[in-house]
């Protein structure tokens, strides 16, 4: 059983919290609660026959909270960098956020670039090719999603986890260091998700989903 800590980053109103809610609860809520500080989501997925528990930290989007958000980068195995395809300004800020994330996280952190709100094609301001080009240039994985229609939401989270999983297989991550956001639990724990997997004080546990 593998525990992964993921992050969602970036702007206000791009639908970070909505993406998370769609992934963990499979529902869409147009007016989402304000996130102040950090909120949490969790879900169990299976990759390559291995049970993987994703723990997602949904962080506040306002600039002012960046000094707080920064302290959460560390200890994350992956991050979701989200912009809104109907708002060019959110795309224009990616570089600054990316630099900030790279600077304050461990160097192996997998970053997924997400262009959200793909259901609003008529209001699109950022072309898909632009997102792809940005991702290529900075070595990120890229996807366009819609939290509203659930399109690609599942894939975005799972692909991020896959990429991390592959890195683990390649031995890139030091899995004994919890600061990397990865924790390998005992084999048998996976069979019973309702038993809170609380071995050795790791940061994730039993299935709540």
């Amino acid at each position: 059983k593998i525990y992964l800590k993921l992050f969602s980053l970036l702007f206000l109103g791009v639908g970070k919290s909505c993406l998370l809610l769609q992934f963990t609860d499979k529902r869409f809520q147009p007016v989402h609660d304000l996130t102040i500080g950090v909120e949490f989501g969790a879900r169990m997925i299976t990759i390559d026959g291995k049970q993987i528990k994703l723990q997602i930290w949904d962080t506040a989007g306002q600039e002012s909270f960046r000094s707080i958000t920064r302290s959460y980068y560390r200890g994350a195995a992956g991050a979701l960098l989200v912009y809104d395809i109907t708002r060019r300004d959110t795309f224009n800020h990616l570089t600054t956020w990316l630099e900030d994330a790279r600077q304050h996280s461990n160097s192996n952190m997998v970053i997924m670039l997400i262009g959200n709100k793909s259901d609003l094609e008529s209001r699109r301001e950022v072309k898909k090719e632009e997102g792809e080009a940005f991702a290529r240039e900075h070595g990120l994985i890229f996807m366009e999603t819609s939290a509203k229609t659930a399109s690609n939401v599942e894939e975005a989270f799972i692909n991020t986890a896959k990429e991390i999983y592959e890195k683990i297989q390649e031995g890139v991550f030091d899995i004994n260091n919890e600061a990397n956001g990865i924790k390998i639990g005992p084999q048998h724990a996976a069979t019973n998700a309702t038993l809170a997997g609380n071995q050795g004080g790791q940061q994730a546990g039993g299935g709540c989903c």
């Binding site: 909120e39 949490f40 809170a196 546990g205 709540c208």
Partner: peptide
């Protein structure tokens, strides 16, 4: 005291 990290965090934030 019976919960683990993610459940405590979710409980206290909601």
């Amino acid at each position: 005291t019976k919960m683990d990290f993610i459940h405590i965090a979710q409980f206290l934030t909601k």
